[in-house]
Design a protein around this nucleic acid. Structure first.
Length: 200
DNA sequence: CCCTGATTCGC
DNA sequence: GCGAATCAGG
């Protein structure tokens, strides 16, 4: 795992937002162990821990079976070909706004915009993902995440979390030559110098 | 069972 | 430093 400054910043941000370690791990495509381990190493404020580990000798050391990690975010939208998306490969956390993982459209263009607003950390209660509890996060492709009828170009801005039931793409008509609609293109194509973080 | 975070310790 | 394995509580 390559802990770049950016990833660490995201970790801190999500940690500060109160997301669970597993949730953070899911968003960063890493395990919760990695999140917890790194968080502790960074000296991040501890969460209300459910346990109090007393003097317990560990019999066997931790082996490393080394599972094949596949951080594959397969988003094959037919809309993005001529232009490489400078933004999120999987989740809308890369484009600017560090404190707003889930973009909320201010002006719904469709009459029934199924926007999920902000995905709260309690989203797990709303659904029971039976898929692979222990394995790596499964990223849904656009084909099964969005039962799109029309084949025309559509905004591929992700709404919600990949792998969760409500996940889908925006689907609005994108700007000419852009993978995103007007609305999301504004957040996707952000000047880096406009990025302002509240992190230390 | 599921979830959570903490710690240990081989690498 | 990293994180899987493990622990331990809800």
């Amino acid at each position: 795992m390559e802990w770049t400054e950016e990833i660490i910043a995201q970790l801190k941000d999500l940690w500060a937002e109160g997301l669970s370690t597993a949730e953070i791990g899911r968003r960063l495509s890493i395990t919760k162990n990695a999140v917890v381990g790194k968080a502790h190493r960074l000296g991040l404020p501890p969460r209300p821990s459910p346990i109090r580990r007393e003097g317990k000798a560990k019999p066997t050391g931790a082996e490393k079976p080394e599972k094949t990690a596949q951080p594959v975010a397969e988003v094959t939208a037919d809309a993005q070909r001529s232009e490489p998306a400078p933004a999120a490969p999987r989740a809308p956390l890369a484009p600017s706004v560090s404190e707003q993982p889930a973009p909320a459209p201010s002006s719904p263009q469709a009459t029934d915009t199924p926007v999920q607003e902000k995905v709260a950390p309690k989203e797990k209660a709303a659904a029971s993902p039976k898929a692979a509890p222990k394995s790596k996060p499964v990223f849904r492709t656009i084909s099964d995440a969005e039962p799109q009828k029309r084949r025309g170009p559509s905004c591929c801005w992700p709404i919600g979390d990949p792998g969760t039931p409500g996940f889908h793409f925006c689907g609005a008509t994108p700007l000419p030559g852009k993978p995103y609609c007007d609305e999301h293109a504004q957040i996707a194509y952000v000047r880096l110098r406009d990025r302002r973080d509240t992190m230390a």
